Simulated scan of single mutants.
Amino acid sequence: MKINIMISADHINKEEVLGKTVVVIDVLRATSVITTAISNGCKEIIPVLEVEEALSLANKGECILGGERNALKIDGFNCSNSPLEYITDVVENKRLIITTSNGTKAIKRSEGAKHILIGAMINGKAVARRVLSLREDLVIVNAGTHGEFSIDDFICGGYIIDCILKQNLKVELSDIAKTARQIYSISPDLSFIKEAKHYNRIKELGLEEDLEYCLKKDIIDIVPEYVDGKIVKIDV
């Protein structure tokens, strides 16, 4: 198995992901939201790029709307991009339409991959197990922030790589994948993530509880997967 990393949604190479397993990471906060919602019983999640598309889909059936622009809740939406809002009472057996600044773009631009998995710190070990079970080369797609590199996603990718290597040493890492794992190994308590620009943007908004939640390791043991335009729980 070979593992590579793409540093933002804007850096996705379609030829590189074609036919491979992709893990999309937007740890602060879209993939943490998606993983939490699916874990709490959400029936399916539809990621879209534009607010107008989300509103249009919402008019065609019973669903809830979630997401953000510039880390803030979108007017008229039911939920923001806080994973703490996606509790069972809100999402169970519901269809969620979500649009975010970075995460949903990374998911949609990964289309063409054989499998598109949703990864975060909160389900890192489960993602590693799922990747190994698929036996395909892996591309980790960091959502980044507005097309730029993000420390938070990079370290999360490093954590997932570390989990993979602890289960299978016969893995070939690209230089950037080696770097991600090394950075994680230097800061396994995730303290270095506090240097991230996006981390501090969320902190400035008073969302410390979101940050604390998103940086918990392995509190969820499922891996959502994007299949035919929808994110669902795949039983394996």
Rank of each mutant, 00 (worst) to 15 (best):
I74M: 12
A58Q: 13
I219Y: 03
A113I: 03
D218T: 12
R181K: 14
K114T: 08
E212N: 12
V27A: 05
R69G: 08
K73F: 05
S174Q: 03
E148F: 07
V17D: 06
K230F: 00
V139E: 02
P83C: 01
K178I: 07
E44F: 00
N70I: 05
I74W: 06
A58R: 14
V131N: 08
E212I: 13
A143L: 04
D210R: 07
D189F: 00
C214V: 09
S133M: 10
E148T: 10
I98S: 11
S185L: 15
I161Y: 04
T100I: 08
L57S: 04
I140P: 06
L207G: 00
R129I: 03
V22W: 08
Y86Q: 05
L207E: 12
E15A: 13
H146T: 05
I161T: 02
C79W: 04
I25K: 05
D162Y: 14
T104I: 06
V48E: 09
N200L: 02
V24K: 11
N40Y: 07
G229P: 03
Q182M: 12
Y213W: 01
M121W: 09
L72Q: 15
C79E: 12
P224N: 02
D218S: 11
N4T: 15
I107Q: 05
A177H: 03
L132M: 07
K233E: 06
I176N: 14
V91T: 11
Y213D: 05
V141Q: 01
V227P: 02
I193N: 08
T31H: 01
L173R: 04
S185N: 15
K108H: 07
A113T: 08
K105N: 13
I222P: 04
R69Y: 07
N40D: 02
G19Y: 13
I161C: 06
Y199L: 01
I186A: 03
V236Q: 07
S82F: 02
S150A: 14
D228V: 05
A37M: 13
S32C: 02
E209C: 06
I155D: 06
Q182K: 13
L65K: 15
N78T: 09
Y213C: 00
H146P: 00
D221H: 11
A126G: 06
V91K: 10
G124K: 11
I164C: 15
I64M: 10
K94M: 09
Y226K: 08
L211H: 02
T179R: 10
